[in-house]
Amino acid sequence: MAKAALDVKDLHAWYGDSHVLHGMTFHVQEGEVVTLLGRNGAGKTTTMRALMGSGVRRQGEIMVGGASAIDLPSHKIARLGLAWCPEERGIYSALSVQENLMLPPEVRPGGLSVEEIHQMFPRLKERAKSQGTKLSGGEQQMLAIARILRTGAHTLLLDEPTEGLAPIIVKQIGRIIAQLRERGFTIVLVEQNFHFASTLADRNYVVDRGRVIDMIPKHALADNKEKLVGYLGV
């Protein structure tokens, strides 16, 4: 049996006094692509923040590659091999494209080389000297994904990487995620666009009001279409 890259049990999270996650439970095997689907406000982004220990108070159990992350500060969680591409992308305007790309420190050996990354994202090489936030939305998204590939992190948390982007860019990002999967990355993908997500994912977790309410594996998607539409309200 494959090893668990990520094992989350009964995860609660709060913003101040506002209790947002009410016992999220899910797991991701090494090399798997798993989605978190759910309506706006369901708690997907908060789940990612809670995993990274970033900006929320949390409680429960988070195991990253067998090591407990619940009591660690954010920078030590990253060093367990978890890398995050946040919903707002987080490209630094005070840094050039190249500086943004080189910013995250290496957390373990075995990340992609800069040459490999530039091959995957040629635009980032052409625009290396530009200010990070001068890139188009799609390019900024590419940069946000690219910069976490260098670090040797094995599990990638991608929060709505296609949000607000043109269909052609969405397709490109889909191809990139497929490539990353080929390379052995474990991926947790948050999506509202479930047509996009379902073509990539091995398993789909449905999140509602801070809980996982269902899990649908790839092969069962076709039979559960109506149920999913009901969950997501699409």
Binding site: H75, K76, R79, P104
Partner: peptide, 12 residues
Amino acid sequence: TENPTLLAAFGV
């Protein structure tokens, strides 16, 4: 200076 929270999540 710009976004310390995200930088910490990168492992700094």
